[in-house]
Design a protein around this nucleic acid. Sequence first.
DNA 1: CCTTTTTCAATACGACTGCAATGTAAAAGC
DNA 2: GCTTTTACATTGCAGTCGTATTGAAAAAGG
Lengths: 202, 202
Amino acid sequence: MPKRVDHHARRTLIADALMRVAADRGLEAVSLRHVAAEAGVSTGMVQHYFRTKDEMMTFAMETVGERTEARLTAAVEALGESPAPKALVRTLLTGLLPLDEPRRAEGRVALAFLAYSAARPRVAAALREDAAGMREVLAGRIRAAQDAGDAPEELDPDHAATALLALVDGLGVHVLGEHYAPETALAVLDAHLDTVFGPSPH
Amino acid sequence: MPKRVDHHARRTLIADALMRVAADRGLEAVSLRHVAAEAGVSTGMVQHYFRTKDEMMTFAMETVGERTEARLTAAVEALGESPAPKALVRTLLTGLLPLDEPRRAEGRVALAFLAYSAARPRVAAALREDAAGMREVLAGRIRAAQDAGDAPEELDPDHAATALLALVDGLGVHVLGEHYAPETALAVLDAHLDTVFGPSPH
DNA sequence: CCTTTTTCAATACGACTGCAATGTAAAAGC
DNA sequence: GCTTTTACATTGCAGTCGTATTGAAAAAGG
């Protein structure tokens, strides 16, 4: 058994357990022992694949990021080629919202990591890059819509992209806190999208 | 010395130390001993004023909430009586943004508490109420602006209020993560306010 | 004055933490 | 077949955690 093991698979197995613990008991309940127990393995094995707890946490966070990205690209590809800017933007943004239960869990983990990253510059840098990339894409689509005459010219694309991302992040946090239903968040987002791209033909 | 002590003063003294620890070492660094050391008192004294750690955390969170509220009402009163809806809304929202260093610290604490509350229903309920109150005020001002003909009639005041609060929360999180400068957040907020209340006469 | 109450300080306790060290079994390489 | 490497499991350690306990000093109430 020893030699032939898929390292990445083991690491994601552990990361998944970590996320389950974090999602329903909070990030401060994440310890080597709890994660190991949740994964059904020994703490020794966890130590074998992650030399430190911080390494484990970082990997888990990266996993969340990669999955989100994969989900987004899949949703975008499902739109077919050269979709309308508004449809693409809406797909990207709704993909960030915690609309169903598994995504709520992921959202809680992401929120915990967000707070965790406040005192960890290296972790924060990764989040910053992801967000910057997303803003660039959004701004690009807004520019495209402007060129096509589908968005008001006086709109600053960078500002509008920043607003969109901040809006969904804020909506996501509020939905996680159960301030209102996911449907409300969707409605609010759609209303805002209409102000950027013009009203939809229903 | 013993009998005559201002309990509330002692508790806020400790809560302030807690916030300092949380702001620059993260919430998981908040322990009775660390907080006591930061406050320059013994852990016994902390225990005297808070029977449990959770009680201490809850008090600190309430303190952040009360201070924010006090700051907001003071800023609103500085506007004089019957200010324009847009001015009032802008004052309220910019008051929630972490624009200077002390507010950044408070923001980091609030963010940590937000994640903390995800696994604590009671704490989450308090946040929910605060946010609901804020949304009501915002929606009310938007309605007033509509009645005065200063905001588009087709706007749903509740949705618009929800969007505004989500936007500032999102912007605040991004500013805390140093995704962009506070000035950018302000500019984005102002641009959005213009779409709700119409452009300002500079 | 003397008792009682409040305010704190010091310490001890058991549980838990991250991590290192050690041991063991099994497969790969020669 | 023998050595080496990989993959774990177990255990131990030093430290931190929240909290309970104990005790002392000091002021208020009688």
